[in-house]
Write a protein that binds this DNA or RNA. Structure first.
Lengths: 195, 195
DNA sequence: CGCGACGTTGATTTGCCTCAACGATTGTGG
DNA sequence: CCACAATCGTTGAGGCAAATCAACGTCGCG
């Protein structure tokens, strides 16, 4: 298991000693998730925070008509999962699965609780992490409520520049909240200039 | 200034000593905001976290056509403001104003930073607060992406039961993401049963 | 009283969806 | 290595949910 990515991630916000690093790394669980397999399914209770180290995951909800709505894409370096389920230990309203063969590291909730007490720096780290995520979710809300599909697509391109060629258009459409057919038409009608 | 509401709010998650309480209360700023006046305007940098002690506020964005989109209502006991602006000290994308004569308590960012160092319990409190808010925002995202207007209205009623008679329908419409006209029609057409 | 904000209702328009068909690509098993 | 199914992107015809525009009655308030 390779913990370097998550350690680098953490060190952007707090500075750890070698012992603290060691203590922390020993708590990390590792998991491989093959394409189309689940990290978590709707209805399950999330076991703890998960951090992507390789591949590509997505979290999404399923509406009463069976349609999927992507909440978040998670390339390496991103955290992923249903926060509500994790925080309140209630059944998840989101599913998380892999769009490519992937790997995550994660921690048991009980270990996280102990970690916060033993090394308060991690409490700080997760506070900062949560605030940043909150800011991102707030911005997404504004985007969905205030902008037409075309600009939501532009926002998507800005947020996930590395995923633009990689991701099936279908997934992008689900993320910005339109049908695949509509996204296709949208992209091909604003392109009436090249040949 | 009355700090009892915010102290009660905090004590739900962490336990403070008398000295800590005192230290904390001395950092609190107080502000009265009359109806239609601003706590913050789009473009300003948020000075620090704000907690509503009386009245009713709302945060909202303004789109390119000049239309308002309500992100959150904030009755007493709620925190309010543009988190992105607060965390990153960048210009706000939201405005916050008062729907009724209101009062808030708030803290300067610099004081908050010192508070986290001096009394780590507050770092914990704000971590928990941020995680809860994150869970709420995530649920709202799911609601907007996955549900038709009717169910979004039902969700609103569940989240803000105390505001149902109080709030102008116009504001509710803006919150659930439809026009006032449409909300009016929606409510009056599902009521074809009473006389 | 008169003005402005709000809720309602109707006629019309539109952004996006639905359904259906088709070619291109991928992947999978025989 | 080829045949077949599955998945994906594209395009078109038609439909619907919600927006737009406009008019009107009500109410609270200066």
């Amino acid at each position: 298991m390779d913990a370097s990515l998550i350690l680098e991630h953490i060190s952007r916000h707090v500075t750890l000693t070698d012992e603290e690093r060691e203590y922390f790394v020993r708590l990390l669980q590792h998991r491989v998730i093959r394409k189309k397999q689940f990290l978590n399914q709707e209805g399950e209770v999330v076991k703890g925070p998960a951090f992507v180290t390789a591949g590509l995951l997505r979290s999404y909800s399923i509406d009463s008509n069976g349609f999927e709505h992507v909440i978040q894409f998670a390339p390496p370096g991103w955290w992923v999962g249903d926060i509500g389920s994790m925080v309140f230990q209630r059944p998840s309203i989101l599913s998380v699965d892999a769009l490519e063969d992937s790997e995550v590291v994660w921690m048991r909730e009980a270990d996280v609780d102990r970690l916060f007490v033993d090394i308060p720096k991690f409490e700080r780290f997760f506070r900062i992490l949560s605030q940043n995520a909150l800011a991102a979710h707030q911005a997404r809300l504004v985007s969905i409520l205030s902008l037409p599909a075309k600009q939501r697509y532009a926002n998507f391109c800005q947020l996930y520049p590395s995923l633009i060629g990689v991701l099936p258009q279908k997934q992008v459409a689900s993320y910005i909240g339109v049908t695949p057919e509509f996204l296709s038409k949208m992209l091909n009608s604003s392109n009436r200039s090249s040949m």
